[in-house]
């Protein structure tokens, strides 16, 4: 399974980066969501996969059972998901703003800061 997941992650990254390079706001947003998922998978798989239970301490013992899932990458991913959501929301707001201000969704036509005829 872990080998399969590395391939799936590769597909996600390829699709996400292609979408982000496509040059329109909507596709950039879609790519951003996809690439967040891909990065989370990378962290998760790098922390090794086990079919064992979650890192919870049952009421009978004082420590996590031998062979439970790796807790550290999970904590990292949890944080990453929420931050990724914040980033996504901000990008969405910015895209809306840019579209209503500039009247185009083609990123390459947004050249207020770096106009074409600059010398």
């Amino acid at each position: 399974m872990d080998i399969l997941l590395t391939l799936v992650t590769g597909v996600l990254v390829a699709g996400a980066s292609y979408l982000m390079m496509a040059g329109t706001l909507v596709r950039f947003l879609l790519g951003l969501v996809l690439i967040s998922n891909a990065v989370n998978l990378i962290i998760f798989v790098s922390g090794r996969l086990t079919y064992a239970g979650p890192p919870l301490i049952d009421s009978a013992s004082k420590t996590v059972a031998e062979g439970a899932a790796n807790s550290l990458p999970q904590a990292l991913i949890l944080t990453a998901i929420v931050i990724g959501f914040g980033l996504f929301a901000f990008t969405l707001a910015l895209s809306l703003r840019a579209y209503s201000q500039l009247g185009t969704d083609a990123a390459d036509e947004m050249r207020e800061a770096e106009p074409e005829d600059r010398t």
């Binding site: 929420v82 959501f85 914040g86 929301a89 969405l92 707001a93 809306l96 703003r97």
Partner: peptide, 16 residues
């Protein structure tokens, strides 16, 4: 989390 998500959402709806 509540404040951040709701804040963005309400303003998003308003701006739309």
């Amino acid at each position: 989390v509540i404040g951040g998500v709701c804040g963005i959402f309400f303003n998003l709806e308003k701006a739309v």
